[in-house]
Simulated assay, not measured.
Amino acid sequence: MTTTHITNPSTGLAGIRERLWAALAARDEEEAAAAVFDACDTGTPLEDVLLDVIGPVQARVGREWAAGRLSVAQEHAVTAIQDRVIAALAHRTAPRPAVGRAVRRRDGAPVHRVTIACVDGEWHALPARLLAEVLRGRGFDVDYLGAQVPTPHLIAHLHQTGTDVVALSSSLPVRLPSAHAAITAVQAVGLPVLVGGAAFGPDGRYARLLGADGWAPDARAAATLLAGGLRRPEEPLPAPHHDLPHLPHLLDQEYTLVARTRVQLTHDVLTGLEDRVPAMSAYTERQRERTAEDIAHIVDFLAASLYTDDAELFTGFLTWTAGILQARGVPTGALLAALDLLADAQRDFPRARAHLAAGRRALTRVPRQPDPGTHA
């Protein structure tokens, strides 16, 4: 049994975050719940607890994983505790009186209900969960569908409910094609779409590219946008997915061909790396699996960058990956070799080769550690 204590308001949000982090690091769910309950009981608004305590602590979980200080299993365990704590908070806190009746959609209709879902293939559900609780706290009626919602199931749900606005969440840019399909399908049934999450870029550039009706950088901004009415900006947004003039680069089929050959590309690059990186001869089976996973992620992000025609999406992922691999003891040279092998396989794809070349240039600017012969 964990002994709980009441948080001193003077401790501030930083103190609450540290208490929650310590509880999560110890996998102490009771203490994690006590940390946030005590914060609410001593006057911290629920929305602040959700967005200024739980949200930043989850971001810290991600950084600890990236630095190699948390395993995937540990990260999942901590995230599960956070999700249960949010659920407990939701049941413990009475919702505010409905304000959604006064909110107007861009067509003038009132917003009574918001459906929130992660796009198909997106398993990072905590940001969407936080948005759901923030909106409930502000008096909106919320349908929260959770992680990884296939678009046909989302549309079937919308036909069966009285939803007024759909909010889609995605953390990984590799889900942007799925997000595009979902945005288009929802708009086809006459509903506006608000999107958010890291996948859409820090400035919402991919939200605009894919034709969303609105984008918000965080849950507070999303709630404010919905309260003010979700209207189209003065500058027209791109056309839906089935109309390609606004995405003419997709006509070259490079995205489609890279996405369809993902498995073969991963296999071929892995085989090629065995010749170019001598240290791989000593890899265990688990290390080979992790290397194959890393290559598959590179192919996925290359495909996403081709879909958006934005090489920065690819280079940003590569520089982030270089840091992750260095934390595992994998030299940047191995990543460069993988890009060269991919470029060889894309000799007939000029856009893919240009994105790979941009990625190579970005990696050469990453500080390189000496190769001690270590591996993933």
Results as ranks from 00 to 15, higher is better:
residue 335 L to M: 14
residue 321 T to D: 13
residue 334 A to D: 08
residue 338 A to N: 01
residue 320 W to E: 08
residue 330 V to E: 05
residue 343 A to T: 13
residue 318 L to K: 11
residue 332 T to G: 05
residue 311 A to L: 13
residue 327 A to F: 11
residue 332 T to S: 09
residue 319 T to K: 10
residue 320 W to S: 10
residue 317 F to Q: 05
residue 314 F to Y: 14
residue 318 L to C: 04
residue 312 E to W: 13
residue 344 D to N: 00
residue 323 G to I: 02
residue 339 L to P: 06
residue 331 P to Q: 04
residue 323 G to Y: 09
residue 330 V to W: 10
residue 314 F to M: 08
residue 313 L to W: 09
residue 334 A to V: 05
residue 333 G to L: 09
residue 311 A to R: 15
residue 344 D to K: 02
residue 314 F to K: 11
residue 332 T to E: 04
residue 318 L to E: 05
residue 312 E to M: 13
residue 317 F to A: 01
residue 334 A to M: 14
residue 343 A to P: 01
residue 330 V to P: 00
residue 336 L to T: 08
residue 339 L to Y: 05
residue 344 D to C: 04
residue 312 E to D: 15
residue 326 Q to L: 00
residue 338 A to Q: 04
residue 334 A to Y: 13
residue 324 I to M: 13
residue 335 L to F: 00
residue 332 T to W: 01
residue 324 I to T: 12
residue 311 A to S: 14
residue 337 A to S: 07
residue 338 A to G: 06
residue 317 F to G: 00
residue 327 A to E: 15
residue 312 E to C: 10
residue 316 G to Y: 04
residue 338 A to F: 03
residue 341 L to W: 11
residue 334 A to W: 12
residue 316 G to C: 07
residue 341 L to V: 08
residue 320 W to G: 08
residue 327 A to L: 06
residue 313 L to H: 10
residue 312 E to N: 14
residue 323 G to P: 06
residue 325 L to C: 04
residue 326 Q to V: 03
residue 328 R to H: 13
residue 331 P to G: 03
residue 335 L to C: 05
residue 317 F to Y: 12
residue 327 A to Y: 09
residue 335 L to P: 01
residue 345 A to R: 13
residue 341 L to G: 04
residue 316 G to S: 11
residue 315 T to S: 15
residue 336 L to M: 12
residue 345 A to L: 10
residue 319 T to L: 02
residue 324 I to F: 15
residue 328 R to V: 01
residue 343 A to N: 12
residue 343 A to Y: 03
residue 312 E to P: 03
residue 313 L to K: 06
residue 322 A to M: 08
residue 318 L to N: 08
residue 331 P to D: 01
residue 323 G to C: 07
residue 319 T to P: 05
residue 329 G to D: 02
residue 314 F to P: 05
residue 313 L to M: 11
residue 323 G to D: 14
residue 338 A to D: 07
residue 345 A to E: 07
residue 332 T to L: 09
residue 327 A to V: 11
residue 342 L to Q: 02
residue 326 Q to N: 07
residue 311 A to K: 13
residue 336 L to I: 09
residue 337 A to Y: 04
residue 342 L to P: 02
residue 338 A to Y: 07
residue 340 D to H: 13
residue 327 A to R: 15
residue 330 V to G: 00
residue 334 A to N: 12
residue 318 L to W: 09
